[in-house]
Design a protein around this nucleic acid. Structure first.
Lengths: 227, 227
DNA sequence: TTAACAATGTACGAAATGGTACGTTCAGTC
DNA sequence: GACTGAACGTACCATTTCGTACATTGTTAA
């Protein structure tokens, strides 16, 4: 876009460049997120990212030294964003059953609303988690999730509404699996089984199933509660 | 060019081996499977595949016209292989509970033993299932899974060991989700939560959890069946 | 045998792609 | 205003990568 309108306006012919490092950086990161999550690390093109940015390709290498570093920053930013949203969940003031139910629904919906994040995690798994392993940041971010779930679970066991002997980490695994798969495999599943999985009514049904499944799983075995 | 010469064709049209077409084709496909599942469609390199083959790059283009077609054939071959293994499952002679339990365990173990297939499906989802959509073959292959599960489920409902009102397709979705996630997200999950998910004892535990979860899910609600 | 076609090897081209050299402009400090 | 380092633009390079032209060998039918 050569806006050098060399008109006969002597005082102000050219557009002034305004330095704005933070904004440029954020812009690049946003575009990179779109591109990487859409096409993967090897599929995304630096030139393509540059084109969609208000900055130039030179700027990408200026702020992020190379393609892989840019990808790593993208991944970190995505995890950070997720963490921020999760932090808003306040489960401790709810009774265990409701708290767990809410956590499951939140996870399910959150994943569904953030396909970019899911895709980045898929892509990272394709790369054997090699970049995530480099990131101290991400490692530190995710401890909180397990803690929150552990609290809820322990309270539930104490109150007798959850059965004993479950591992919160494994419980989290189950919740994640169902919520993640809902996004990650939507395309193949829909196509193979000719089922519009993304349709709102089906999403609502799946949310119910998933929540129901988790709650039934933690429910105490019936012990014939007759005295 | 099909020589349909209705001349004095002998009753025995014996086919003699040519150079080595079938073997070369199979070799290419095997290497392509490794490469695509490891690096994705855009990450895999035709030259790299050629190098690992006994054939040359020219042969890849001879048998499979271009990269994307080769990828599609890879995907189809992978689904076909899975289908063959699934067909060995014979559930109809088992009581419903055992049949379902066996189906879940089979799915879980099968996925765990075929990471290449899982990765290809992940990659295909990254591509929005665009190639799978082109394949009439794959579409036709996967109907059987639902049928088998439907039979088991209906028998179970009839015998009273499963609750009513569940959709076999959704049940399959749940089983798939848990089994798939176990492979697809192993790297990120292990790294984030510092948990050796691939370790045999953890795999055994997860298999139990997953089976248990599905069985608890289909179990009839307690209706206080007092005599 | 020989024509015809299938199967295969070698070398190369054109475009894409990650990354850089080098110069220019901005903004704060003295 | 002069200086300086950070912020930015343009043009370019070296390599990679998909794909092909062309030559050659094997195989079968007549």
């Amino acid at each position: 876009m050569t806006a050098t309108s060399t008109k006969t306006s002597p005082p102000e012919p050219r557009r002034r460049r305004k330095n704005n490092p933070e904004s440029v950086r954020a812009d690049i990161l946003a575009v990179a997120t779109r591109e990487f999550s859409e096409k993967g690390l090897s599929g995304a093109r630096i030139d393509e990212i540059a084109e969609q940015t208000r900055a130039s390709k030179r700027m990408i290498y200026y702020y992020f030294s190379d393609k892989e570093t840019l990808y790593l920053h993208t991944l970190e930013a995505a995890y950070q964003k997720v963490r921020l949203q999760e932090a808003e969940l306040d489960l401790d003031h709810l009774p265990p059953l409701e708290a767990l139910s809410r956590l499951v629904r939140f996870t399910f919906c959150h994943h569904a609303k953030n396909p970019d994040f899911i895709r980045l995690v898929m892509i990272e798994n394709i790369h054997h988690g090699r970049f995530l392993a480099q990131s101290k940041l991400i490692q530190s971010l995710n401890a909180g999730v397990i803690d929150a779930l552990t609290n809820v679970y322990l309270r539930g066991v104490e109150e007798g509404c959850f059965r004993e002997g479950l591992d919160p980490r494994e419980l989290h695994w189950l919740i994640s699996a169902l919520s993640f798969f809902n996004v990650s495999n939507q395309h193949t599943f829909s196509r193979i089984f000719d089922w519009q999985q993304a349709a709102p009514e089906n999403q609502r049904k799946l949310e119910e199933h998933v929540t129901d499944m988790v709650l039934r799983y933690v429910r105490p075995d019936e012990v014939t509660p007759q005295p």
